[in-house]
């Protein structure tokens, strides 16, 4: 494992910790998209089915379990927690997730490495992760003055993707025969989706202002 991959994973881990911290400390999930969190849970569950039949390292196993459990925990907070659930604004979080999930499934059934259940679900998870942030970004755009922690959460999530791009470049240069086109193309699209957000996040940070996205 190279430093970019490790830094990417740690940034991903940190983003979730920031999100859980925000929810737990403020007892509010204002500005957090339940739809995105549910999509992430679906991404993790369909991708990490290999927990049941293959083992790569203790590190991988731990991280996979953490991602599944933490997104489950965020969903639980938003849906079930007595105080937090009251702060969820479902009227704003209206993205139609089937418009994301269905095309991803059709694409996974069409473009994959192997037409088996686990491989198609794994490919589906790669495609779905690329677009799963969209409900969250749309919600942020509707929210005037995004709170700092929610902004940081999305920034860290985008940062993790950017570090994965560097990880792939490093692996291409150092590992002969290393290639994974489905992952590269989806990952590049995923990172590109954050560009606009990055621009406004860095601008507001430099001007010392609260983040607000233009509608």
């Amino acid at each position: 494992m190279n430093i970019f991959r490790f830094a990417g994973d740690m940034t991903h881990l940190l983003s979730i910790i920031v999100l859980l911290l925000k929810i737990n400390a403020t007892k509010s999930c204002a500005g957090v998209s339940l739809k995105t969190q549910e999509l992430y849970l679906l991404v993790f569950v369909t991708r990490y089915l290999d927990l049941l039949y293959s083992y790569i390292s203790l590190y991988n196993t731990f991280m996979k379990l953490f991602f599944i459990c933490s997104s489950g925990c965020v969903i639980w907070y938003i849906r079930e927690h007595k105080t937090v659930s009251q702060t969820y604004d479902s009227a704003q979080d209206t993205f139609r997730v089937l418009f994301l999930a269905c095309p991803c499934m059709i694409l996974a059934l069409t473009v994959n490495h192997d037409f088996t259940v686990t491989e198609v679900l794994w490919t589906f998870s790669i495609y779905l992760e690329a677009v799963a942030i969209l409900p969250q970004l749309v919600l942020l755009q509707r929210t005037k003055n995004v709170d700092t922690l929610t902004g940081n959460y999305v920034f860290l999530l985008g940062g993790y993707r950017a570090l994965y791009l560097l990880n792939w470049i490093y692996r291409i240069l150092t590992e002969p025969g290393y290639r994974q086109w489905i992952v590269w193309i989806s990952g590049t699209i995923q990172t590109a989706i954050y560009c606009d957000f990055f621009y406004y996040y860095i601008k507001s940070w430099r001007n010392n202002e609260r983040l607000s996205l233009p509608s």
Partner: peptide, 10 residues
């Protein structure tokens, strides 16, 4: 063991 591509990443 990694039996297909990309599966060692998260």
């Amino acid at each position: 063991m990694v039996d297909f591509e990309g599966k060692d990443e998260l």
